[in-house]
Simulated scan of single mutants.
Amino acid sequence: MSRRADLSGPDDAQERPRKIVHIDMDAFYASVEQRDNPDLRGKPVAVGGSAARGVVAAASYEARTFGVRSAMPSLRAARLCPDLIFVRPRFDTYRAVSQQIRAIFADYTPLVEPLSLDEAYLDLTDHLAGRTATAVAQEIRARIRQQTALTASAGVSYNKFLAKLASDQNKPDGLCVITPERGPEFVLSLPVGKFHGIGPATAARMQAMGIQTGADLRAQSLDLLTRHFGKSGSYYWNISRGIDHRRVSPDRIRKSIGAENTYSADLMTLDQAAEALAPLAAKVWSAATRHEMRGRTVTLKVKFADFQQITRARTLPQPVASEPQLLGLARDLAATVLPDPRGARLLGITLSHFDSDDRVTVQLDLFGDPA
């Protein structure tokens, strides 16, 4: 799920180095399907969509070698990989596996911040019991493999930004450590589009300004970044120096819960958009359930190919009661504005209006996610 970074200025005091681990499951949805169906193992698999329409929600590594990626229209994916096997998503199964994985996390620290079903931050700073964060990350990965027959990659560093970057370095089934000594230089050669917190639209704006890499970003003054990017400019100034003051926050007060995705090819039909909304609704509902919150307002965000952005919202007299209802409302809102000849380059779903009466009581197990 998308999260907006806490924005800290360059003069904020930095505490003692933390021990942050970012765990990211490898091709999660597709790997679960390959695990559960031996006939799919070693073959290019796309979860979601179909050869005729829709959007790929996840792709196996065998499919990725052909250029197939998540959020890609299924027609394009099928052209890139004629032998691609399309599989319908099973979100109940993915949530169950995610709960297994979070149970493992809970054995090591109470400071776990899930980003989605397949990734999370862990703060191990005060929970190492004499071990190193790297050793704990290796142990967690081994337990995930043993208990779920799936692989996970891990990044270990002194802040969230670098830990997430690190987890992507040696995928699949890899581990990368970025030390405080290495962190400031690690970001210099990376394209800004690889930075967590810099989306495709912002990366394009930066590139138009001649900011291609972390080194280019570091060369900009705080004043210039703030003038061009507002409050986010401070965050960009910091991360170009390997600085990130955000804490791992398992419990945070929210006014809304949302997820969005920018697509590599514009969505031209209502059917494509309806398919693309399913994984977004799953992310939003998973987060709402985890935080024991129910909202009455569903908002659909659409950004067209010409970058015009619109929102449509509906507020109910009672809280949204289920993921299918959330998805249905989002699809109904989409039908009021799509199809559009410009095509949709981004879709988002937000759940809000969390009144005190909208909180739900759920039977939580030790690990916190009943979904």
Rank of each mutant, 00 (worst) to 15 (best):
M1H: 12
D6N: 03
P10L: 13
Q14W: 00
R18K: 07
H22N: 00
I23T: 06
A27T: 14
E33G: 01
D36I: 09
N37Y: 10
K43H: 15
P44Y: 14
G48F: 10
S50D: 09
S60G: 06
E62Q: 15
A63C: 03
R69A: 07
R69H: 09
R69K: 14
L75D: 13
P82T: 07
F86A: 03
R88M: 15
R90D: 11
F91W: 14
D92P: 06
I101N: 05
D107T: 12
Y108V: 15
Y108G: 12
P110E: 10
P114G: 00
E119R: 15
A120Q: 03
G130Y: 05
T132R: 02
T134G: 02
A135C: 02
V136H: 08
A137F: 02
I140D: 03
R145I: 09
Q146C: 08
G174P: 04
C176I: 03
P180S: 04
P184R: 08
E185C: 02
E185H: 14
K194F: 15
R205S: 06
M206L: 10
Q207K: 15
I211V: 14
Q220M: 08
Q220E: 02
S221A: 15
L224E: 07
K231C: 00
S234D: 11
D244E: 06
R246N: 14
R246P: 11
V248Q: 07
S249Q: 14
S249E: 12
S249K: 06
I257T: 04
G258F: 02
D266C: 13
E275Q: 14
A276W: 15
V284I: 15
S286N: 10
H291C: 03
G295H: 00
R296L: 04
R296S: 08
F304W: 09
D306T: 04
R312H: 06
A313Y: 12
R314G: 01
T315F: 13
Q318R: 12
L326Y: 10
D332H: 13
P339N: 01
P339H: 00
P341Q: 10
G343V: 07
A344L: 05
L346C: 05
G348K: 04
L351N: 03
S356Y: 11
D357T: 09
L366Q: 12
F367N: 15
D369S: 14
